[in-house]
Design a protein around this nucleic acid. Sequence first.
DNA 1: AGAATTAGTGCAACTAGTTGCACAATGCTG
DNA 2: CAGCATTGTGCAACTAGTTGCACTAATTCT
Lengths: 184, 184
Amino acid sequence: MSLPHAILIALLEKPSSGLDLTRRFDKSIGYFWSATHQQIYRELGRLEAEGHIRALPSEQPARGQKKAYEVLPAGRAELARWTAASQDPKPHRDALLLRLRAAAVVGTAGLEADLRRHLELHRLQLAEYEEIEKRDFPPGQRGAQARLQHLVLRAGIELETFWIQWLTEALAELSVVAERHDSA
Amino acid sequence: MSLPHAILIALLEKPSSGLDLTRRFDKSIGYFWSATHQQIYRELGRLEAEGHIRALPSEQPARGQKKAYEVLPAGRAELARWTAASQDPKPHRDALLLRLRAAAVVGTAGLEADLRRHLELHRLQLAEYEEIEKRDFPPGQRGAQARLQHLVLRAGIELETFWIQWLTEALAELSVVAERHDSA
DNA sequence: AGAATTAGTGCAACTAGTTGCACAATGCTG
DNA sequence: CAGCATTGTGCAACTAGTTGCACTAATTCT
């Protein structure tokens, strides 16, 4: 149940309309909590109904009209509560690892191409993160806020780095395994 | 849509009853694809209806009776198809990173304890993985099957190692940030 | 001016995963 | 042998996330 909180964070960082949020979820926020625009609109409705956010005053409340939201004190309080509350880690689910394990029983045919594709995707993602790091977190850090945000970004960078390294290794293993067919 | 495939893998590795599967999902398989026993029973029903698996012949088909399943050729074929098919990576969702980012706006109060708890959990998980590695993959590898399985396990080990390192860093940052209050 | 495109908001239906409970069979214990 | 815990299977209801479409308003194109 973290989507509403992700939205509160985004809105605290900068009041936005639904579409603005959607765009921001395709970037920074979405890197560790993704959401589609439908989820976002639905959740904005709920958050407003609960009094956690409100639409910024604007003349046109009609459909097809931009509507920006800001966080109310109650929303900020709820976010602080949630942030401090103890939470169990959610179980991971990684289809790629599952497929590797499947390959151990049904064979590796067809896997290589997709591993390469994933490798490429991770390379792109890493490049994007490093771009952000260079732009937003130049060496010689200051405020608490920046330090924490940088910490989160570094997690992203290091995770991508890990996957790139692991996928490279996996591709090497795969070619070894394919060469000598099977012998298990 | 990977749960049925995870079950097929588990059953190919060793035919099992629902409860056996549940237990195995709490161990090795569940490390990268978790599932509750209810999910498993439901999926077993579906897989049987589709002709991908079948219940091993046994005298007592009554309730409260062990019922073991094995994979049929159609199931194996489906698993091979799925393994080879190209799949887009699912978006990540990590509440802990989200909370760190929230802390940048609403303050870090109360976070530390939970970070420590997560650190401890990852340490335990890592120890468990390393135990498995020592037991099942002694140096001097052979078959293709073992190599691939080891590769997957190493991903787990390295991910846990990453989190331990990152959380340690995060705790250090947190204490720095807390000391000098805020200055952003 | 009318047509096509784009920006913005939203509903409805579906799929996957979670939670809470029910109930039968077996074995253990007083 | 009666009661109780454990093992094993399963249904029902709920929550979160996904997919597909609909509709309005503003903008650009001819």
